[in-house]
Design a protein around this nucleic acid. Structure first.
Lengths: 187, 187
DNA sequence: CAGTTATTTCAGTAATTACTGAAATTACCG
DNA sequence: CGGTAATTTCAGTAATTACTGAAATAACTG
């Protein structure tokens, strides 16, 4: 890891270590962190140089980051190399992460649950399991719908919602008094 | 995997496969799935028998699930073995998951970011990185605060909030008209 | 279209993580 | 206490995942 400011270096190392908890590997995490703090876009050679990784490893990791839509590719005038950077806006990044994680961590299970629930439970064991799967499916659908809504929100609404924080419960209290929304289930 | 209903079996296998995406391993995922659909609590021997896992592997995996607070230990009258089950309420489970994931996936990074931000940026490179870390830290704090609030919500408010789903944006629109909350930043 | 530069693929290897059986420990019981 | 039943630990091994260098492919250039 060459010529890196100590603070930046520890940030990169941290992302590498956290990678496994976030479902990416060390290299992918480090590359992301490097691109995230870098002012200018970087090409694969620069990355493999800075982080002392093989060129091929960098290539594969960048592919992985692209599959997460966490980095963008661009070209610099008069240069044939691919240059990579991360989106500017941290909210964009967070939403992308939300969407991708839902796609990878929630959707496959939701699909399986829906399919399993088509089976008619016969024995007591099956009936109990069926109920449990229903519970899980119901909650996952609500979470999934919620994240859909979040992803559709305008930038300003999103910022508002985030800033609200702990005031959301109070908003809920208002609901009764105002009955702006009907009594139907959301979804 | 003995004597298991095909639907239950595919649910268990699915959880095993998803495990790696969720930050747990196959065995841990399978054990959780088995306990989740089982009506009665199970002891380690029963689990290792059902899933064809070594007794020691089951022991370690149950420890892992306990560290996530996703299973509860209990004793049956006249039986010295430990029996395990999952909480009944799927919302409880989801909140536990939220809390534990925040603890493991967010908190360590937040700590590092806060510490890094104490450093005074000197060079241009440092200044840019500093700003990026600030952005990330700010968003993570908001997300962290949000999840705090969620965890503190009463059961009924939580159910309401979940059911709301896509109506949250509409709630936000109300805000201006009603100006119940002041103009200060939340947090 | 031959030469050059950049990227990707992939087989082999390194590193890490998961799993097992045996031994140690703990907890209970008379 | 000594004996038994249960759980945990841990060293060794298996399985998986990550990484590398070499070769293949693709993309441009004159």
């Amino acid at each position: 890891m060459k010529d890196l400011d100590p603070t930046i270096q520890s940030f990169i190392l941290h992302f590498g270590e956290m990678g496994s908890r976030w479902g990416i590997n060390r290299t992918v995490g480090q590359i992301y962190a490097l691109l995230y703090v870098s002012e200018a876009p970087m090409n694969a050679e620069q990355i493999s140089d800075k982080l002392s990784l093989s060129r091929s490893n960098v290539s594969m990791s960048l592919k992985e980051l692209q599959s997460w839509r966490l980095v963008t590719l661009q070209h610099l005038p008069g240069d044939r190399k691919d240059y990579f950077s991360t989106p500017e806006d941290i909210l964009d990044i967070a939403l992308t992460l939300l969407e991708e994680r839902r796609k990878r961590e929630l959707d496959p299970t939701l699909t399986l649950l829906r399919q399993s629930l088509l089976e008619e439970p016969k024995t007591d064991e099956q009936k109990h399991a069926h109920k449990r799967l229903q519970d899980m499916c119901g909650l996952m659908e609500q979470v999934s719908d919620w994240s859909d809504d979040l992803l559709r929100l305008s930038r300003s609404d999103l910022e508002l919602l985030l800033r609200f924080g702990n005031k959301v419960p109070r908003l809920l209290e208002m609901k009764d008094k105002l009955s702006i929304m009907g009594k139907k289930k959301g979804g």
